[in-house]
Design a protein around this nucleic acid. Structure first.
Length: 614
RNA sequence: GCCUCGGUGGCUUAGUGGUAUAGCGGCUGACUUGUAAUCAGCAGGUCGGGGGUUCAAAUCCCCCCCGAGGCUCCA
């Protein structure tokens, strides 16, 4: 629905001649002269419904109150929209708006007549406003979710399935926070999340006002961390047997299969208007399922796995839901799909991916103490697979939150998530795997079994690490929590943008420092050659969380032994300084970063030549 | 999307109707340093944007944009 609101000194109209769609009217409606009136030119559009009426009434009342009008004239005005509703619907909706506005003298001009009008607009800032109202559509999935009943339990490693209200949470404070968060949806937070300040101060990421909210910019250090995480997770998937692919980021809304798929998801899409209406993907499912549809899948090839790093996935989350790196509108997610011949194979893969997720998060620097596990499934699934679920709990070796639905309303029968609990007690899902029993049918994906028959596979959706940005959020929040415990915050060495900083005590030792930098080639080493005091350089290195700081001067030049400050073993008060040879330092870093992706220094190596990003 | 609070040089910030503060950072110079901020000088601002009220607006009013918190949502 399109509205054009005009605050007028007076408005006069006269119905002249009927069109095909003219409604029957009495003489009083035929012509009117109104003074001090808010005229609402209205075009009812295709798809408008009761939710549109409700919003329109709210908007109109709102404006009328603000400008202090007592009189409102609803004036049908088709020219505001190229996409009009059928006339009968339009009249019906106009009448509904008319009868729903309260507290004002409401008039309505007749629909379907050629009308002459004469208006005198007041011309103050609020005297002319236009509004577009779109109907609030609720997807089938959301409607179904409302109907479904959830039951919540805690399942312990010793096999007790306890009603969540009866569980003794002592010793499991984070699980308690998570359960409260999930079930009662209680949010007791009154400050900005710590990671937002950190991501800015450490020059990792930042808001970009010129874009849509939730679309961030990443500075070199942030880009490096992201890049390493991205490579690591994709490599893990490939190692596990997945084939990396790439699919388009935008799709046609008219595509029949996709349309039915969208209706199963409560996600809000970014829409690109044009000759054909496109939407931006919110995961890699679209591209990969369309690809899989065209593949020839002999049963011997199963399970087959496709993985794609979605850069980006787009979800037009509500404005108030967006926070720092925790919840974005554009994010990077490794999305892997596993095509399985049957439920048995799917469950085997599910368990492998569960273990793999634990390993991946641990390597990233998020050990299992930092997250809580949720397992969600239909009651039927649990009844038939108790031992399987128990095994999952035993693998993680701690109690798990269980949600059971009395009916299946999503496309999956089973899923798990690892939920990070942040410094403010908020929970965010990282790794997740789902067993999908619906989309093979929807996308027409099939394989040929031993007897030559076509069959529908079971499909696993897996994000080993969850969104990459969210991993960085978790690392920053964790670092903040470390600080609160009195420890020095840090990144794992393999993710540190700068691994070693060399600080010459004075310009005299610059040459020695440069030679040392060359000897440490292969690692991310930089050199603080600024004309600053040693104290200042040390402080700056500390504020940048640099894991190894090497101060070189007369002594080092003479003995050839380095004085290395090891951050991991230091405290704020007490810096741990270790004497070692260049070779020993190299070996130490080598060992600590073994088997993880490496990368070059993302910034100029000389600090004197380095810009600041904020 | 709704409600509440906020937005002042690159960053942090003082300023409730009367010529816009300070620190950090930047630039210039001095100092050549042994483990968490060396000293001095200089430059840098359409006070988020637009409109209004007023002799006068960062300050009061309206609309919009951006951020945070809440509601909601979270594949």
């Amino acid at each position: 629905m399109r509205l054009l609101l005009v605050h007028a000194d007076h408005m006069e109209y006269e119905a002249k001649k009927k069109t095909r769609f003219a409604e029957k009217i009495d003489n009083a409606m035929k012509r009117k002269y109104l003074e001090e009136v808010l005229v609402v030119f209205t075009a009812v559009e295709d798809g408008d419904d009761d939710s549109t009426v409700e919003q329109a009434v709210r908007e109109i009342t709102d404006v009328a109150e603000k400008i202090g009008a007592e009189r409102i004239l609803l004036y049908p005005y088709a020219h505001l929209s190229p996409d009009l509703a059928p006339p009968e619907t339009a009249v019906e909706i106009l009448k509904k708006i008319e009868s729903s506005i309260e507290g004002f003298e409401v008039h309505r001009a007749p629909f379907g007549w050629y009308k002459a009008f004469n208006i005198s607009c007041k011309g103050h800032p609020l005297s002319e406003l236009s509004k577009t109202i779109t109907p609030v559509k609720e997807s089938k999935a959301l409607q179904a979710e409302k109907k479904a009943v959830s039951h919540w339990y805690i399942l312990t490693p010793d096999g007790n399935l306890v009603d969540v209200d009866k569980f003794d949470f002592s010793g499991f404070e984070n699980l308690k926070k998570f359960a409260d968060y999930e079930i009662s949806k209680s949010r007791v937070v009154d400050r900005t999340p710590p990671h937002v300040e950190l991501m800015q101060r450490l020059e990792i990421a930042d808001y970009e006002d010129a874009s849509d909210p939730g679309n961030l910019r990443y500075y070199p250090k942030g880009r490096l961390i992201k890049s390493l995480l991205e490579r690591y997770v994709v490599e893990k998937c490939v190692e596990y047997g997945a084939m990396e692919v790439e699919t388009p980021i935008m799709y046609s809304q008219q595509h029949e299969t996709l349309r039915r798929y969208l209706d199963r998801f409560p996600a809000r899409q970014y829409i690109i208007e044009g000759k054909r209406k496109l939407f931006l993907r919110f995961a890699a499912c679209f591209g990969q399922f369309l690809m899989t549809h065209d593949m020839v899948l002999p049963y011997r090839a199963l399970p087959i796995k496709l993985v794609e790093l979605t850069k980006y996935s787009f979800r037009k989350e509500q404005r108030g839901e967006l926070v720092g790196l925790r919840r974005l509108r554009a994010f990077t997610m490794p999305d892997m799909h596993t095509i399985c011949r049957d439920m048995k194979q799917a469950m085997d893969e599910f368990q492998m991916q569960y273990r793999l997720s634990m390993e991946v998060l641990d390597t990233i620097g998020i050990p299992s103490e930092s997250y809580e596990v949720a397992i969600r499934m239909t009651e039927d699934f649990y009844r038939e697979n108790r031992d399987f679920i128990q095994e999952l709990v035993n693998i993680i070796k701690k109690p798990v939150l269980i949600e059971m639905w009395d009916s299946r309303f999503f496309y999956f029968v089973l899923k798990f998530e690892f939920n990070f609990i942040d410094a403010l007690g908020k929970a965010s899902a990282l790794s997740t795997v789902q067993i999908d029993v619906e989309n093979a049918e929807r996308y027409g994906i099939s394989f040929i079994d031993e007897s030559g028959q076509e069959k529908r596979p079971v499909i696993l959706h897996c994000s080993l690490s969850g969104a990459i940005e969210r991993c960085i959020y978790a690392l920053l929040e964790k670092a903040h929590m470390d600080t609160e415990k009195g420890n020095l915050p840090s990144f794992p060495l393999w993710l540190s943008p700068i691994q070693v900083r060399i600080i010459p005590v004075s310009g005299k030792y610059l040459k020695f420092a440069e030679d040392l930098m060359k000897k440490l080639g292969g690692f991310r080493v930089d050199l603080d050659d600024r004309n600053e005091t040693l104290g200042k350089k040390i402080r700056d290195a500390g504020r940048e969380w640099i894991p190894y700081v090497v101060v070189v001067g007369e002594e080092e030049e003479r003995t050839g032994l380095l004085t290395v400050t090891v951050r991991k073993e230091s405290t704020v008060k007490n810096q741990k300084k270790v004497k070692m040879t260049v070779e020993e330092l190299k070996q130490r870093i080598q060992k600590e970063t073994e088997g993880r992706p490496s990368a070059l220094l993302p910034l100029p190596p000389y600090l004197s030549k380095r810009p600041r990003f904020r």
